[in-house]
Nucleic acid binder design. Sequence first.
DNA 1: ACAGTTTTCGAACAGTGTTGGAAAACGTTG
DNA 2: CAACGTTTTCCAACACTGTTCGAAAACTGT
Lengths: 208, 208
Amino acid sequence: MKLTKERIVNAGMAVFAEVGYQNLSMRQVADRLDAHAGSLYYHVRGKDELLALMADRVCRQAYDAGTATLAALPPAATWQDRIEAQATTLRLSIKQHPGGAQLLAESPGILSPGSLSLMERLLRTLLDAGLPADHCGIAADTLLSHVTGFVLQEQNQPTTAPAVTGERYAELCEQFPLLMGPLIPRLSQDEKFTRSIRLLCAGFAALS
Amino acid sequence: MKLTKERIVNAGMAVFAEVGYQNLSMRQVADRLDAHAGSLYYHVRGKDELLALMADRVCRQAYDAGTATLAALPPAATWQDRIEAQATTLRLSIKQHPGGAQLLAESPGILSPGSLSLMERLLRTLLDAGLPADHCGIAADTLLSHVTGFVLQEQNQPTTAPAVTGERYAELCEQFPLLMGPLIPRLSQDEKFTRSIRLLCAGFAALS
DNA sequence: ACAGTTTTCGAACAGTGTTGGAAAACGTTG
DNA sequence: CAACGTTTTCCAACACTGTTCGAAAACTGT
């Protein structure tokens, strides 16, 4: 079958989902298409462009998933609910691919049409909520960079927790009493995320 | 001169500052020490550990710079001022190295002592401000992931702006009217950053 | 000076992104 | 059908990368 930019990105997304960001190679993408690595370079300027295209696709998927989530919301939903819905679907869309946050982080995100769509919709919900326009830009920007930053830290934490114990644990408790202390509740990642989003929304509302 | 973990990390930081994150190779680090690449592996388990050590050093530098900035603050400074000071010095410390945000993003950040120090100090300023303890954890976490996410997008934007014009520009304006429209002010990165931090602080205050 | 340990070398391995010329496939025209 | 030009693919290379391993060197203590 003929090689196409579209098919190359498809294959890229497939091996990306299997081996993750770090181990993605042009040769593996070519193998999945029964082609040779050099042939890809006729359709794609280099690995960078392929990664950028894939990042855009992730954004598009997140955008489409977001429209579905928004449509399922009750009509009485507040603008905070709508922001939270977009943020969580974005997070889940990125988390579907191992290392997906790195993909979005490394490609120059803002110029991609998919990323722009996400931004535009965030802006519209904020403006429709009646928030002052000169704050909405920063608000949407902050929201996006926060989500990517959050998933980045989330995906890079080793899945098998080392579970610090013994002497090393006592040393940590002494050095960082607040962090290890009882004041800070240990929440699940999901809860941490939604709370951080609510935090941001509260900030938007307060600065109005 | 003898090879040491310390000297290896020093050399790593030097070539990191010159060639950036993407083009950092063990051989270049070894060259700078007049050694061969294989010799590094006697002191360092692999490139991953070297990167983790370097990330920790960046965090330490940011921590030390933060203490200086905090000391220069007037005694009447609010807790918002102190949070903003820590955030901006962290941002500047990361920006000193090309690709520094990627370095922090890829290494599992939370377990590094330098990162823990940053977190601990953020927590203390928030708790000292009288904010409710069960919110401070998420607040500090949100703050850190936001700063890394911000600098990440900042450092990956191509320095030479492509400056979209002509037909393509009109198309963008039609597709993303809010983004391209006059409502959203075009601010400098510095201003965007401080405003986003103030936004977060407002959120912290509002949820109390 | 010898033995034992710590450190460094140097060559190799498997893998990467990328390039350029040759070869095949394709569509169009005579 | 045959010849042509174009588009697309192959294939072999190049310069790298991280990493490993046995041998050589340097250093230490007795």
